[in-house]
Design a protein around this nucleic acid. Structure first.
Lengths: 226, 226
DNA sequence: CGATAGTGGAGAGTGTCACTATCTATAAAT
DNA sequence: ATTTATAGATAGTGACACTCTCCACTATCG
């Protein structure tokens, strides 16, 4: 097919396709002349994947390129595909905070190590999620949210439960390529799915636990009727 | 205190403080002369909060302004603070996808409605998380990830469990102002916390479920030793 | 007292990012 | 034969989050 059809089938504008090809998210079409090229199903697939990672997953284009390269590379082993995917999917964090407020950063890093040890998780020291988590915990501490420890434990249990499901579902796939693809898709798109479900559940629980005890505002009643 | 101390105590550079004041994230200091102003503890607090939302939570400055305005406004009721916070915290989504591939969007929206109904959640039709979730589900369907339904159910259960904890923890706070603040902090910072915990747990579970059955690569062994 | 450093405020400039527009020389379609 | 489409390259755009530069002052130190 030519580029117009590729664009029609994926919903991605032609200039954007050209941009993605330049950036290496999608390979060039098979050249058939000085200004002609042919695209196939694998271009459709890869373009859709690229679009999902960038638009829904919110990945920077450079990270999406790495993740796609990982999926479509040969010679990956199932034992490092997940680690590599996590590296690829974590946008490079900005420099460490030169912030004030005690040594919240160091404390938080130690706290993360301790949490990982306590749960018996085996996680490489280089996993970028350690840093992200430590930063978030340091921030919470700095804000004086000191009752977050119970919640953190629940979060960790929950995460373990989800990860168990996910890893099982993924390992059920036959070949390595499909596994790699599923890992990238689920690691990336799982975040917005989980985040929005959490927000929906929050509203629901708030209504259930708090809303029943008092009258609704007129505004809310109107919105419910609409 | 003057601006230099405010900067030292929060770790935020002076030009950035000035920028935040201009953008309304932080109020002006109390003017004491043509080029002098005094800042107090509430500026420290609000600046730290602003920084956390923008840097760790990844909120756009405009959304952070709304969220902060909500926290520090008087006359909020506990019944709409959560809803308003969710509106404020959701960055304005880009235009609806003019994408190809059947009516995945409409189907997904219906699927979200159905999920909410099935779980007995009471959620306003305008909650932005509905859109986000529908977009993500439509994308998954378009990518052919058709076995995501079991996972989705687990995600929803999990989200409900977390939301229950969170709402209880928040409603335990005495005054409305502290509740509003906690809602904004936890809605925003909970996302990165949960996301990184999920990644850590994924690696741990992958090691547990898959790693034991085969030899490690040399690279991994080296990384573990280091 | 004077020199130096710090201040508030405003406007312009910077760097990054993800596109998007324009151009040229072709090729395809009608 | 004319219109439309194409590949590829270069340049431009708009949003965003700062960051710089100035200016007219003010504070403070020796």
């Amino acid at each position: 097919m030519r580029i117009a059809e590729l664009s029609r089938r994926t919903g991605v504008p032609i200039p954007t396709i050209k941009y993605y090809v330049r950036e290496g998210l999608v390979p060039q079409g098979e050249r058939t002349g000085p200004n002609q090229a042919r695209y196939g199903e694998e271009h459709v697939r890869r373009l859709r994947l690229a679009r999902a990672l960038v638009e829904v997953g919110g990945l920077p284009v450079a990270s999406a390129r790495e993740a796609l390269a990982l999926i479509f590379s040969s010679g990956i082993s199932e034992f490092d595909v997940l680690g590599k995917a996590q590296y690829a999917l974590t946008p490079p964090r900005e420099r460490a905070g030169d912030d004030a407020g005690g040594d919240a950063g160091g404390d938080a890093a130690a706290q993360v190590d301790e949490l990982i040890a306590r749960r018996g998780w085996q996680v490489k020291p280089g996993n970028p999620a350690r840093r992200t988590l430590a930063d978030a915990l340091a921030t919470l501490r700095r804000l004086g949210e000191d009752d977050y420890l119970d919640l953190l434990e629940t979060y960790a249990e929950t995460a373990e439960h989800l990860a168990d499901m996910e890893v099982r579902a993924i390992s059920r796939r036959g070949d390595l390529h499909a596994m790699a693809e599923a890992i990238v898709i689920w690691t990336t798109l799982g975040d917005p799915v989980l985040a929005s479900l959490r927000r929906l559940a929050q509203e629901a629980q708030a209504t259930r636990l708090l809303g029943g005890t008092a009258a609704k505002t007129a505004e809310e009643a109107a919105e419910e009727t609409a």
